[in-house]
């Protein structure tokens, strides 16, 4: 790791977002949570996000790692710190604040 003084700040203009959506089966809540999330990401994070959907019915053990109790649960794994938003994500404004997108966006 050579001199990285220059790199650390400005090198990644395209911050990668990794989002994980925990659901339990195809319920109306989980479907609408996914739809809402997809729309929001397309509007605000186009090209720099990745959504992973975890169905706990299929992978129950994964609930432990992110301390999932409620579903649907959205977890922002990247960028740090980890953020958690529960519910069907219907209130876009709240989701943006919860993901730190409101204040994080330069303009």
């Amino acid at each position: 790791m050579a001199p990285n003084t220059k790199q650390s700040v400005g090198q990644e203009p395209q911050q990668k977002w990794t989002l994980r959506l925990y659901v339990a089966g195809q319920t109306p809540k989980s479907v609408s949570a996914f739809t809402n999330l997809k729309r929001l990401c397309e509007t605000h994070l186009k090209g720099q996000y990745e959504i992973e959907v975890v169905d706990l019915l299929e992978n129950p053990r994964l609930a432990k790692g992110d301390q999932i109790v409620a579903v649907p649960s959205l977890v922002r794994r990247l960028p740090p710190p980890v953020k958690k938003i529960i519910g069907d994500l219907a209130d876009e404004e709240k989701v943006l604040v919860g993901l730190d997108l409101r204040s994080a966006r330069p303009a």
Partner: peptide
């Protein structure tokens, strides 16, 4: 022993949810 941590300050709530996650963990 399953430690369940719920930190209010770290969780944002928007809209409808249920505690199926808890049920799944317990059931498993």
């Amino acid at each position: 022993i399953d430690y369940v941590s719920i930190e209010r300050s770290e969780i944002e709530e928007t809209g409808e949810y249920d505690l199926e996650g808890l049920f799944i963990r317990l059931g498993d």
